[in-house]
């Protein structure tokens, strides 16, 4: 006896598989499917909402020790920056002045970015050598030095996406360019009114590398 139910099921099932096979068809059959553990080893980014933050925790008290050990030689004991290495602390209320100081505290909009960057790129020359807990500790110490969290605040994967950074709303989107006067491709060609006084010469500033200084 013909089983209509079975036939119908077969048709629906095959349609489903045909459809899904179509949706996921590989056009060139190149490359291989990535294993979960392969992705896990390389997918280290942490998003502003905390997605991607690995399980771990750390506070500023522990952070001070590890910071002194692996960060302070370039960034200074208090994040003040040695030589031309970046300052990490301070600079609050400096962004609208003639000498803005862009630190993790004064400029960086997300705590997640500090974690992401330290884990992937620091210490300079020993990338991805810190443990997750050590990274949380250093981030906590930086946030503490910038007076964003308390000394005993336990920073974890669960709350790193919720830290409110002082300059969180300091960024403008979208890009407003072209932002200069539109002149429809027809700029002045003759007797234009332009400033013609020489108000500065690079030669006088005298910072051009010697070999090329004329």
């Amino acid at each position: 006896m013909f089983d209509w139910v079975k036939l119908l099921t077969l048709i629906i099932t095959s349609l489903f598989f045909m459809n899904s096979a179509f949706a996921s068809e590989r056009k060139f059959n190149l490359g291989k499917i990535a294993l979960k553990k392969e992705v896990a080893g390389w997918d280290i980014d942490v998003r502003p909402d905390g997605k991607g933050a690995p399980i771990g925790k750390g506070n500023a008290i522990k952070g001070e020790e590890i910071y002194a050990e692996v960060c302070a030689s370039c960034h200074g004991d208090f994040g003040e920056g040695i030589d031309r290495w970046p300052e990490l602390v301070g600079g609050h209320d400096s962004l609208d002045t003639h000498d803005p100081i862009k630190t993790t505290g004064s400029y960086w909009p997300y705590a997640s970015t500090i974690y992401d960057y330290i884990y992937r790129a620091m210490p300079f020359g020993a990338a991805q050598s810190l443990s997750h807990d050590e990274t949380y500790q250093i981030v906590a110490y930086l946030l503490y030095m910038n007076e964003i969290i308390e000394e005993d605040f336990e920073l974890t994967e669960k709350n790193i996406g919720k830290i409110k950074m002082p300059n969180r709303n300091g960024f403008l989107l979208p890009d407003p360019r072209p932002d200069v006067k539109i002149i429809n491709g027809k700029p002045c060609m003759k007797n234009c009114t332009v400033p013609l006084k020489i108000i500065g010469k690079a030669r006088d500033i005298d910072v051009t590398p010697e070999e090329n200084k004329s």
């Binding site: 997918d43 980014d45 998003r47 502003p48 909402d49 862009k102 993790t104 400029y107 960086w108 909009p109 997300y110 997640s112 970015t113 992401d116 960057y117 790129a121 960024f171």
Partner: peptide
């Protein structure tokens, strides 16, 4: 990595 929001990396924020 494909995602549904920007990642706000160090290079594009600080």
């Amino acid at each position: 990595e494909f995602g549904d929001m920007p990642y706000m990396t160090r290079e594009e924020t600080s």
